[in-house]
Design a binder for these strands. Sequence first.
DNA 1: TAATTCTTTCAAAATATTTTGAAAATTTAG
DNA 2: CTAAATTTTCAAAATATTTTGAAAGAATTA
Lengths: 166, 166
Amino acid sequence: MTFEEAKDKFIHTWGTLATQWGINRSMAQLHALLLISPEAMATEDVMEQLQISRGNASMNLRDLMDWGLIFKVLKPGERREFFVAEKDIWKVARQVAKERRRREITPVVDVLNELKAIPADTPEAQEFQRVMAELSNVVGFADNTLNAVIKAEENWLMGQFLKVFR
Amino acid sequence: MTFEEAKDKFIHTWGTLATQWGINRSMAQLHALLLISPEAMATEDVMEQLQISRGNASMNLRDLMDWGLIFKVLKPGERREFFVAEKDIWKVARQVAKERRRREITPVVDVLNELKAIPADTPEAQEFQRVMAELSNVVGFADNTLNAVIKAEENWLMGQFLKVFR
DNA sequence: TAATTCTTTCAAAATATTTTGAAAATTTAG
DNA sequence: CTAAATTTTCAAAATATTTTGAAAGAATTA
């Protein structure tokens, strides 16, 4: 496999994968492209490489910035804006974990807490309460796991954890 | 909030949430409904409660069975098929982790291994290799974490892990 | 076996999401 | 300030996904 083929395959794979995760293809492909690019890229560049429209590029580049996965950089003497990806993949993982926690876990926790509080006066309501309580535990676990990733500035403990389950 | 309201809110919330995860609303709502139902339900029942078509119910019930999240049960003297959800939520989490691992992680690992092998003869190719290698690590971590959930028949070690990061 | 009940399938319709592209807005240079 | 370059916005178009419903298929009963 040549380098160009590998590059295409990576970008394509990343894009396909992302859709399973509720992230759109363009955004994932933009991220993949910038991730493996040693140079900052201008909007025109990414438009051409991925064959997407200006509007699409603009919107998704902004979303990637909101996620903290890419940054604008200015080149001296250049008027256009360039973009680089965060290259430390652990930082990327941390960033994604943080965002998903904020967007997905926190709201669920709030709803579950609200729902746990209803009176358990029928068998149905009791079952409901039981499920809500158990779900809280599971969600709590997910939350802790994400936090572990987020907080793991040092890899030591993570390493230990991994060893145990290897 | 009355029990009926709570029930609706739960089913609705679960459905909304699921779409962010690439699971369709009907499937999530069916799961939510069966999860909190103390009784096995027939197709007609879920169709009526969720206001969905027979075809939709049939397909998504099957998908839920494929995921190992619900089961068919036969009631004596009844000709129709009834459905119950797996009620042990940790088992549910385990099952979901297992499926996601199979469907999402394994294919990525394969592609990354393939891509790691290309020759690093240019700066671009070197950067590419570096990213592939780091991604392998992150994916490996995700894989291990999922495995930890899957294998944790006992909660002890999990508890230890959580304590450390609390 | 035939009739009845229930389940599955799948093409078409409905819905939701993503992408485009041109106009508007913004920024920079002269 | 004006003009040119660049970026953003957003309604419409394209695409993808989900849902429907009726027909076909299976299973059960008489």
